[in-house]
């Protein structure tokens, strides 16, 4: 990894068995997500979901400083889940990670399972869960922005815990798990603040112009739908 702009886990950080294990986890998780995502995708939301993936790709390139000599970047799970739902959101982040690994040599190919598990599955699930739980306490646009911030912060920290778990299972035992974990999770608390700000700004902007396209707002202030051919 010398002299590269890697943003995700490279190959070799986890042993082969663990890498394969998490490829399995990722495949199962993505199969479930794809099956569930269908219900959330129609002529209107499918193009939006494609753009959310592109937006996550673009935003992941924007590393911001968190400590002297240390940067962070958006992971995007909470952002995607709030805009297009958890299942479609997990697929959005996964597609970004696949494009980055195969086209931009960012994130190892055998580490793809672990990277997808952390950022697309665990992070997205945690972010969406927090957003759903907090939604009932939040009112109006300001409430939504706060919910987005907290959900994104949790998403980042929980995703970093995924790395800790993987390193505990299949990392190089020559290195202290405690020290690595403390650094990874500590830094991701700071990165989470940046992820929170970017997510809050993005969700706030979309909600300002098209609240009807924000998945998390579905069922809240939605006008009644007239269904043709369905007896009342």
């Amino acid at each position: 990894m010398t002299g590269s702009v890697a943003m995700h886990m490279s190959d070799g950080l986890l042993n082969t068995t663990t890498s394969l294990l998490f490829i399995g986890v990722a495949v199962v998780g993505l199969a479930v997500a794809a099956a569930k995502a269908r219900a959330d995708l129609d002529d209107r939301t499918a193009p939006l979901a494609g753009l959310v993936a592109a937006f996550v790709f673009a935003t992941q390139m924007l590393n911001f400083p968190v400590l002297p000599g240390v940067s962070g970047h958006l992971l995007g799970g909470a952002l995607a889940a709030i805009l297009v739902g958890p299942w479609v959101g997990a697929l959005c982040v996964s597609i970004v990670l696949v494009v980055q690994a195969l086209v931009f040599a960012d994130g190892g190919v055998t580490a793809l399972g672990a990277n997808i598990t952390n950022m697309a599955l665990i992070g997205t699930a945690a972010g969406f869960l927090v957003a759903t739980l907090l939604k009932r306490f939040a009112t109006g646009k300001a409430g939504l922005v706060v919910v987005a911030f907290v959900a994104a912060l949790v998403n980042t920290v929980v995703a970093s815990l995924g790395f800790v778990l993987e390193f505990a299972i299949g990392g190089d035992p020559a290195f202290s798990l405690g020290a690595v974990s403390a650094t990874v999770v500590g830094v991701h608390c700071l990165i989470g603040l940046g992820e929170g700000v970017i997510t809050a700004l993005t969700v706030g902007a979309v909600a300002a112009v098209r609240p009807d396209l924000v998945y998390l707002l579905r069922g809240t202030s939605r006008p009644l739908e007239l269904r043709e051919g369905t007896p009342a």
Binding site: L62, N63, G72, V184, V187, L190
Partner: peptide, 26 residues
């Protein structure tokens, strides 16, 4: 939305911090 993504990736990306990210740092 597409335009915003293109501007972020095409122009704002030049301002990105080139230091190692949190995972690399660890």
């Amino acid at each position: 939305f597409l335009l915003v993504a293109l501007v972020l990736a095409g122009a704002v990306s030049y301002l990105a911090d080139s230091n190692p990210d949190g995972l690399d740092h660890a």
